[in-house]
Amino acid sequence: MEFSDKQESLTFRRGVREGFPICVGYFPTAMAFGLVCRDVGLKIWEAVLFSVTNFAGSGQFLAINLLASGSLILEIFIGVLLINMRYLFMGAALNNKLEDGIHGPKRLLVAHGTTDEVFSIAVLHNQRLSWPYMIGLEGIAYIGWVGGTALGFLIGMVLSSELQMAVGVTLYAMFISLFAQELRQKGIMVLVIAGFSAIMNSILILCLNVGSGWAFVLSMLTASIFGALVITEGEALP
């Protein structure tokens, strides 16, 4: 699918309009992140700072998970770096479509706002991407992400102590929900790859006493290499 945008130019207003569904979609996920941050013991400004400086769903959830399990900073850094490697490809594709003359801080801001969803919308246009359009598209998504984080944290403050214990499952429920959606959309390979990494991680931690951060990095890398070996280029890639 491509947007037929021969007539309508890529304005700030159009960016906001196309980014609004992303904003709505981010809000509940970001609320879940805010809730988890509170559960783990962060202060509200720390939770918000997380979303302001990172603006990356899976990377942030990974980081807070490893942080809660007492992983070392290097383990967290490498884990987040790996999980966000896909942005290299998204950025390379968007960079080829950017209008000339977007340099310095503008270019850095466009880079900071590159998320999976922003990419999937922006890349569909068959004309060059303007600065006002990109900042509208990314800005509205950013507001949803940061706003949702703050609200999720505040909601966590009014929960009873019994419920707070059960809230410990939030993070896992969030990943399982993501997994269920991926499985439904992309098929059995998602189960094979995620199952492979889950089993390997469990063996590393429970049987071999490997630290949780390194176990995570090792099992994620091995499973993705395994997946890339069994999926050929012609097949639908997750």
């Binding site: 899976s58 998970n65 290299l88 490809f89 790859i193 995620a194 990494s197 390997m200 499973a223 993705s224």
Partner: peptide, 12 residues
């Protein structure tokens, strides 16, 4: 690289 986010879901 594109498979990394899916491979991450298991150990998470």
């Amino acid at each position: 690289m594109r498979l990394l986010p899916i491979a991450a879901l298991g150990p998470l």
